[in-house]
């Protein structure tokens, strides 16, 4: 693969469960210091694509190339620890790394994500926003080159969401990590992302946010109003969709 800055590349990824194709023809490429965002409606295959890229799941066809020895920090979409499991934030952070981690190292990453006060609190007692910051801290503790964030602002109130996105920005800046992020928040995506991949079981459109927001498929997915508040730039499109989301190309003889 090309240069040193290349972190991960997914090419022609297709995932099918039996006859049910949930994702096809997905290409994603992440470079050092770049934020790539996956957007799309529920069931579009965003989390599936993330799982394939993380190696948690094998694609039916297609390949995923990772930089050899790539260190990945992952922030899962959901975390619910059984109330019967007594575990503090500090202990939870330490679980993420096989070697012994000093309290100091734990404090440093919590400081970075703004959750230093809850170091010794039980995991089950912290708020949604604090949980996201702890998960982010655990990802950072591994000194990652690539951060994979599956809906990082889930369960966080509006002001907290803005704070979290700012935090992700500053982490990218300070650490020069590559970021893959699944997100619903289009405004933030458009403002803070280098590259957008819009999924609806296949890649609808991909590119710089300003291009994507004018794409007819994007407009169809998210509505005219949303698109027009986001758009600044138009470009040509090469295919259209049936109602079920499948692609009408030149070889389509219906619709």
């Amino acid at each position: 693969m090309a240069d040193d800055n290349q972190l991960i590349t997914a090419q022609g990824v297709e995932v099918a469960f039996g006859d049910n194709v949930v994702l096809s023809g997905a290409n994603v490429n992440v470079r050092k210091g770049e934020i790539v965002t996956l957007i799309g409606p529920n069931g579009a295959g965003k989390t599936t694509l993330v799982r394939v890229m993380l190696g948690l799941m094998k694609p039916t066809t297609g390949t995923v190339w990772r930089k050899p020895g790539l260190r990945v920090g992952y922030m899962p979409q959901r975390l619910s620890i059984d109330p019967a499991l007594p575990i503090t934030v500090k202990r939870f952070l330490r679980l993420g790394v096989p070697e012994k981690v000093t309290t100091n190292a734990c404090m440093q990453v919590l400081e970075e994500t703004g959750a230093i006060d809850i170091l010794n609190n039980p995991m089950q007692s912290i708020s949604g926003g604090e949980l996201q910051r702890v998960l982010l801290a655990r990802a950072l503790l591994r000194q990652p080159e690539l951060l994979v964030l599956d809906e990082p602002v889930q369960g966080v109130d509006i002001t907290g969401q803005a704070d979290l996105y700012r935090l992700i920005q500053s982490i990218r800046q300070n650490r020069q990590v590559g970021v893959v992020m699944v997100s619903h928040d289009l405004h933030v995506v458009m403002a803070q992302t280098d590259h957008v991949v819009c999924l609806n079981q296949h890649v609808c459109c991909a590119g710089h946010p300003s291009q994507v927001s004018r794409h007819p498929e994007f407009v169809a997915l998210f509505g005219d109003e949303v698109a027009s508040t986001l758009a600044v730039y138009a470009h040509d499109h090469d295919h259209q969709h049936g109602l079920d989301g499948h692609v009408h190309g030149e070889h389509c003889d219906h619709g």
């Binding site: 799982r51 993380l54 190696g55 948690l56 990945v72 992952y74 899962p76 975390l79 620890i81 499991l85 575990i87 939870f92 679980l95 993420g96 790394v97 096989p98 655990r138 591994r142 994979v148």
Partner: peptide, 18 residues
Amino acid sequence: WHGLLNATVHSDLAAVEG
């Protein structure tokens, strides 16, 4: 112990972490 506990807390996260 470490692996078992990690997998108990969150299996995907544990898998990504090795």
